[in-house]
């Protein structure tokens, strides 16, 4: 054992970017993703480590590279650059050592796509049942919901830009549905 110093190649399941009528699809680059579960105080501690605020209900807090997405009253999804993954995990575990919590690496469980354009809300409305009007779903809002028959996390980053996160094996379905939806806009 031990003769291997090779590094296996990473393969994304996401297809390359493409522009549809009025909306552009882009795969979101590989990221570090952690599910954090525990009390609200746990999230506040984690947010401090990351340099973000603890997001309120159904909201994301973020800077240019990192984000904390509210998923439920005791659950958050942390997004950060892939290169920070190992170090961030350690810093978080250190900071949270005294507080009961669960921190689980799901960097490969989830994948995300970015949708941007004037038709982005209309495209999402082919499969998302929620009201995506800015008054009802403002910039900064995030939630888990259904896109067709797939569970997704939707995050509105700008009036016409959305981050759509799903489990890896659901990505072909989600993207297929987006593609089909784009035909019917």
């Amino acid at each position: 054992m031990g003769e291997s110093s090779m590094m296996a190649e990473r393969r994304s399941i996401l297809p390359a970017a493409v522009a549809w009528h009025g909306v552009r699809y882009e795969p979101v680059e590989a990221m570090a993703r952690f599910v954090l579960r525990g009390s609200d105080a746990v999230c506040s501690t984690a947010a401090e480590v990351i340099g973000l605020s603890n997001p309120s209900v159904l909201r994301a807090s973020h800077d240019e590279h990192r984000a904390i997405l509210w998923q439920g009253p005791d659950e958050w999804l942390i997004l950060a650059p892939e290169v920070e993954r190992v170090a961030l995990l350690q810093r978080l575990e250190t900071a949270l050592a005294q507080a009961p919590h669960a921190l689980v690496d799901v960097s490969h469980r989830n994948v995300a796509v970015r949708l941007e354009g004037e038709a982005a809300t209309r495209l999402l409305a082919t499969g998302i049942m929620l009201d995506l009007d800015e008054a009802a779903f403002p910039v900064g809002m995030t939630t888990r919901t259904l896109f067709g028959k797939a569970d997704v996390t939707l995050w509105r980053q700008a009036p016409q830009r959305f981050h759509l996160e799903t489990w890896r094996s659901f990505a072909p379905y989600v993207i297929g549905l987006l593609q089909a939806g784009a035909r019917g806009l």
């Binding site: 599910v35 579960r37 009961p100 919590h101 669960a102 799901v106 960097s107 489990w167």
Partner: peptide, 12 residues
């Protein structure tokens, strides 16, 4: 109980 669950089916 102080315990939490996370699905990791697709992580691995």
């Amino acid at each position: 109980l102080k315990v939490w669950l996370t699905s990791t089916t697709e992580q691995w």
